[in-house]
Design a protein around this nucleic acid. Structure first.
Lengths: 221, 221
DNA sequence: CACTCTTTTTGAACACGTTCAAATATTACT
DNA sequence: AGTAATATTTGAACGTGTTCAAAAAGAGTG
């Protein structure tokens, strides 16, 4: 069994590798950050980095974790003085993009390693279940204290998160200065979604949304 | 300058490499198909394959091209006896999934190499503009001869193609037997979208859709 | 044929992510 | 303290995609 001191030593080394990797990702990007560079920066051998992280992907997952944590904090601060679904959603989405901004230049490479189903970083996969729950939690927070029809309320946070994944994809491809187009997308889409949710009680709209929800339930996992 | 005979010789070699690559992709998958294996199968040196295709990605693009061509043919055949947007959309989407079925096992790897913005295979990028136009054309064909409000008509094919990209992503993650869930998604979503298009004239729905179209125009390119 | 110039082909080389058996350090137990 | 078990570290090795200078083949021209 492990002793406290050993655990601490091991955790320290792991943290050191993690820290080196995140720093290099930030400063050099994904492609230029080689496992060898991470090892050297951390002052350990190449093999050691693999002892703590089974793949480069797992290091990217750490990055993902950190960015969600940051988004969570920023979003929950920004939500303090916002009411209304549109405004709250807008704040959360902007917080997300803010948290990712340092990585925009390498976003494409990250997406490439994130989307394969077997990847550890795949946001839909089991390995990232924890982070995903955190991320959906942000949108649960968004929905809290807003008026949402009961039949939609439970599902809405996950749907918003899914939409957010779409925004992230858009952001990755957005080469406009400071990603202005992504900001414009958020500013335009958030009130639109709020309006749609508001209309969802109407007899014309409701069956459509109910059917969509039923389809989602039928089709998933 | 090139002589006809020389061009023909060169084209033959290129076709040979292409053919070897596609065959190996089909039988071995993306990861196991190494550039060296492609070269050997084609009976040329490794360097030669790079003379004709600048990267493995470009070979995947050939695969993408082929699959779109196949989908196009299957869709246009299936559309002969279908009327109504829902039925026609369903047929086109099923044709797409049909064309991709042989590659499902390796779909994830393909997506990983396809989505990075700088990738040659990226379906939104300039390198695949031709294939993309072909693919959108399939949905132009779908819309033809159906009743669609004028304000939506021009945009609809591209929107449907975008939705299809979503279906493809879903398909990649779909591990159900014979991708049944993707089929169910198509069968459910196609009539839903048709219904939405039908309702899009109504004064409650129309402004919402108009605003969404305006947002899209504002935000793209 | 002899000569240039271009197109095509080659195989060695590079850096990368990853694996692994062996060496070393640390802990657990007597 | 001494010994067996375990946790950690190491560096060499493998196979990969990609690059490149040089060789070979081909075409055009006198």
């Amino acid at each position: 069994m492990n002793d406290n001191r050993l655990e601490r030593k091991s955790d320290q080394t792991k943290a050191l590798v993690r820290q080196s990797a995140l720093g290099l990702f930030r400063s050099q990007g994904y492609a230029k950050t080689t496992m060898r560079a991470i090892a050297e920066e951390a002052g350990v051998s190449l093999g050691s980095t693999y002892y703590y992280f089974a793949s480069k992907d797992e290091l990217v997952l750490e990055l993902y974790r950190e960015s969600v944590t940051e988004q969570r904090a920023a979003a929950s601060a920004a939500l303090q003085d916002k009411s209304g679904l549109g405004e709250r959603l807008k704040a959360a989405l902007h917080a997300g993009v803010d948290a990712m901004t340092p990585y925009h230049a390498f976003g494409g490479a990250f997406v490439g390693s994130a989307l394969p189903p077997q990847s550890a970083v795949n946001p839909f996969g089991p390995a990232s279940a924890g982070v995903r729950e955190d991320a959906i939690g942000i949108f649960r927070n968004v929905v809290e204290g807003t008026k949402v029809p009961a039949f939609l309320r439970a599902q809405l946070p996950e749907l918003l998160w899914l939409g957010y994944m779409g925004v992230v994809l858009f952001w990755v491809y957005d080469h406009s200065e400071d990603q202005r187009r992504t900001r414009a997308l958020i500013d335009g889409a958030a009130p639109l979604i709020a309006k749609l949710v508001g209309l969802s009680r109407l007899p014309v709209v409701k069956p459509l949304i109910e059917e969509a929800l039923a389809l989602k339930a039928r089709v998933q996992g």
